[in-house]
């Protein structure tokens, strides 16, 4: 997994342009583990090591609020995203609904020049909205009945991706 994260960080760096500053925004709660690592990797490569990094909680923007209570996490974006290149980071892309909510939430902070999506796992089937990643750790084919879970050392003692039948 370490190699994959390094590759994602390099791919994001490759596309840095002179016109727009790049910022990274991780999606709460589980996208943060990946975005923390990507930002740490990027900061070891660039000088000065100062890529702007924020965290976005999408709870209040969900389209399924009425189907149960979702507890909110912290949003922390203490910089302006106006005219910047924003790379959204999440662990698993599946139906696309989280990213839809994240785009809505993001646009309330300003008008970025460009928004890109970086995910560790792309579950290619059963997308419910026209959303595709720009940077993918690994694309996998799964059944609707299966669950994909990404575990991180910080939470579950080991970095791993597991498929639950």
């Amino acid at each position: 997994m370490g190699l994959t994260i390094k590759r994602l960080a390099h791919q994001i760096l490759e596309n840095i342009s002179q016109e727009n500053t790049t910022v990274i925004i991780g999606i709460q709660p589980r996208g943060i583990f990946l975005s923390d690592k990507i930002v740490a990797t990027i900061n070891t490569i660039i000088h000065p090591a100062t890529i702007q990094y924020g965290k976005l909680d999408i709870t209040f923007y969900r389209d399924d609020v009425r189907s149960g209570l979702h507890v909110a996490n912290k949003t922390d974006i203490n910089f302006d995203i106006e005219n910047k290149r924003v790379v959204l980071v999440d662990d698993v892309l599946w139906t696309g609904r989280t990213i839809r909510a994240a785009l809505d939430a993001l646009l309330d902070f300003g008008r970025p020049a460009k928004v890109e999506l970086c995910v560790l796992i792309d579950r290619r089937f059963n997308r419910e909205l026209p959303i595709q990643p720009d940077y993918t750790g690994r694309a996998i084919d799964t059944l609707v009945s299966e669950k994909v879970k990404v575990n991180w050392k910080e939470m579950n003692e080991v970095d791993e991706v597991i498929l639950i039948q």
Binding site: Y61, R62, D104, D108, F109
Partner: peptide, 11 residues
């Protein structure tokens, strides 16, 4: 949320 440029959520 109330500190954001758009102080409103669609919940």
């Amino acid at each position: 949320v109330l500190q954001r440029p758009v102080k409103k959520v669609p919940s």
